[in-house]
């Protein structure tokens, strides 16, 4: 009896969390995607460095929207209701398969520039001290 109850509980749990998992990962969308709103309000822009044209409440922002472009200033292009908009990355949860540029400096006091690899975390992917500043 206990085994049946445990199996039923397991099945029910899996059944209940399945949509949530699907939502978070947007497995239905291939490639890069905006998973949903992160901020209470999401601004939509008409260009990567353009003007704000609309602001959506977080619950009005569509989930699992494919990212159709990324600008050097990190803005993400999405298509919402047939119109292309740009959104600021900090306002949304997103999945980006491509590499983000590493953020590194060759000492704040020096002007020397370093070429870097790619990483997601602050300082990750940066050359280690003493390595001569070369990119791994």
């Amino acid at each position: 009896m206990k085994a049946v109850f445990a199996a039923a509980t397991l099945f029910a749990t899996a059944f209940l969390i399945q949509p949530a998992l699907a939502d978070d990962t947007c497995s239905s969308v291939k490639g890069d995607a905006v998973l949903g709103a992160r901020a209470p309000e999401v601004d939509l822009y008409d260009g990567a460095d353009g003007k704000r044209v609309q602001t959506l409440k977080d619950d009005a922002f569509p989930r699992c929207t494919p990212i159709t472009g990324r600008a050097p200033n990190m803005m993400l292009r999405v298509n919402i209701n047939g119109t292309d908009y740009w959104v600021a990355p900090h306002m949304v949860k997103y999945h980006f398969a491509g590499n983000l540029p590493a953020v590194c400096r060759n000492l704040a006091m020096g002007g020397e520039q370093e070429k870097v690899g790619s990483t997601r975390g602050l300082g990750e992917g940066c050359p280690k001290p003493g390595s001569g500043g070369t990119t791994p």
Binding site: R38, N73, M74, A88, P89, H90, M91, V92, Y94, L100, P101, V103, R105, L107, A108, M109, G110, R120, G121, L122, G123
Partner: peptide, 24 residues
């Protein structure tokens, strides 16, 4: 002389990446 600033620095480009970086 110290080569790096004393205060913690948040690079703005990292901030604008909008990733969930625990350091930031």
């Amino acid at each position: 002389r110290s080569r790096c600033p004393y205060e913690s620095v948040i690079p703005v480009e990292k901030l604008l990446q909008g990733t969930d970086d625990t350091d930031i």
